Computed example of a mutant assay.
Amino acid sequence: MRNLDITTLRSFAAVAETGGVTRAAGFLHLTQSAVSMQLKRLEETLGLELLDRSGRTIALTSAGEQLLVYAKRMVALNDEVIVRLTDQAYVGTIRLGVPHDIVYPAIPRVLKQFNAAFPRVQVQLISCYTKALKADFGKGEIDLILTTETFVDAGGETLCVKPLCWLGAPDGSAWRQRPLKLAFGRHCTFRPRVIERLDKAGIDWDVIVETDSDRTIEATVSADLAINTMIEGTEPPHLQRIDHGGHLPDLPAQMINLYGATRSKNMVHDALADLLRRAFGNEEHTRLRAV
């Protein structure tokens, strides 16, 4: 009788779901060689080829596709048994990436709720711009990421679609000036679409602040020296939505997407993903998972 090893099944499932050994190694906190050895041992145990390595990317063979269904169930059952029978609290770190501009107000609430449920698990919050977060996620360096985009890539899940809004200083007048003075983040994904709307409306503009610092942008806008755009509902309390009465163009909507939620590792990973869904509006998906 041959016995399957949960560790090798966990590595196999991670490779299948991430599409590569390097990414899986990052998610599992293992070396690439360790994951490769585990895959080889699993194939030798079964006497089957589970991965098709003939192409540029790793694909599953027919046997691999069948095993993946069982592997995910066995890993999940293993984790459930350990938790319930040993009363072992989850311990460790989960890495969450969030763009600067959507950290508030939702993420502090998510972190507080998560800490109450899993007090011995540390959430390492990585705040950066969407392009960098997706690059690090692709290398397996982050477990879950939120993004602000106009589309959603394969493996992503759109949590909500919200419009952008114009922001200025409370009772400010910078929005009336021409050319219109703007403050933007250097890697802001909103900027091209905002500029496009201004050009179509025939409004002259000038970017007077271009920076990697959100604090610099907020200080400039708070001083009524420029205006900015943010996703509706994420604006800080010291800035105000501009009631321009049609003197500024309407702005397009933006998606808030979640990546990594389909790569279920354990109860901790799934719980954090569900808290993010609740915080950003995709409650229907959360309810379906709970059924």
Results as ranks from 00 to 15, higher is better:
Ala34Gln: 01
Ala34Glu: 05
Met37Val: 15
Met37Phe: 14
Lys40Ile: 10
Lys40Val: 13
Lys40Asp: 14
Arg41Ala: 09
Leu42Phe: 02
Leu42Tyr: 01
Glu43Trp: 03
Glu44Ser: 09
Thr45Pro: 04
Leu46Ile: 04
Gly47Asp: 05
Gly47Leu: 02
Leu48Gly: 02
Leu50His: 02
Leu51Trp: 05
Asp52Ser: 01
Arg53Ile: 07
Ser54Met: 04
Gly55Met: 03
Gly55Ile: 04
Ala59Ile: 11
Thr61Met: 10
Ser62Glu: 14
Gly64Ser: 02
Glu65Asn: 03
Glu65Met: 13
Gln66Phe: 05
Leu67Gly: 04
Val69Thr: 06
Ala76Trp: 06
Leu77Asp: 12
Leu77Gln: 12
Asn78Glu: 08
Asn78Tyr: 13
Asn78Ser: 15
Asp79Ile: 11
Ile82Cys: 13
Val83Cys: 13
Thr86Phe: 13
Thr86Asn: 04
Gln88Thr: 15
Ala89Pro: 06
Val91Asp: 13
Thr93Ile: 02
Leu96Thr: 13
Pro99Val: 01
His100Ile: 06
Asp101Met: 05
Ile102Tyr: 06
Val103Ser: 10
Val103Trp: 10
Tyr104Phe: 15
Pro105Trp: 05
Pro108Ile: 10
Val110Glu: 01
Leu111Lys: 13
Phe114Trp: 03
Phe114Ile: 07
Phe114Asp: 01
Asn115Ile: 15
Ala117Tyr: 04
Ala117Ser: 12
Phe118Gln: 00
Pro119Leu: 02
Arg120Thr: 14
Arg120Val: 11
Val121Cys: 08
Val123Pro: 11
Gln124Ala: 11
Gln124Glu: 14
Gln124Tyr: 13
Leu125Tyr: 05
Ile126Trp: 11
Ser127Glu: 08
Ser127Gly: 10
Cys128Gly: 15
Cys128Gln: 14
Lys131Ile: 14
Lys131Thr: 13
Asp136Tyr: 11
Phe137Val: 08
Gly138Leu: 00
Gly138Trp: 00
Glu141Thr: 15
Leu144Cys: 02
Leu144Asp: 00
Ile145Gly: 00
Ile145Asn: 00
Ile145Arg: 01
Ile145Thr: 03
Leu146Gln: 10
Leu146Phe: 12
Leu146Pro: 07
Thr147Met: 00
Thr147Leu: 00
Thr148Ile: 05
Glu149Cys: 00
Glu149Asp: 08
Asp153Ser: 12
Asp153His: 05
Gly155Ala: 03
Glu157Ile: 01
Cys160Thr: 12
Pro163Glu: 08
Pro163Asn: 08
Cys165Ile: 15
Trp166Gly: 01
Leu167His: 05
Gly168Met: 08
Ala169Gln: 02
Asp171Glu: 09
Gly172Lys: 01
Gly172Arg: 01
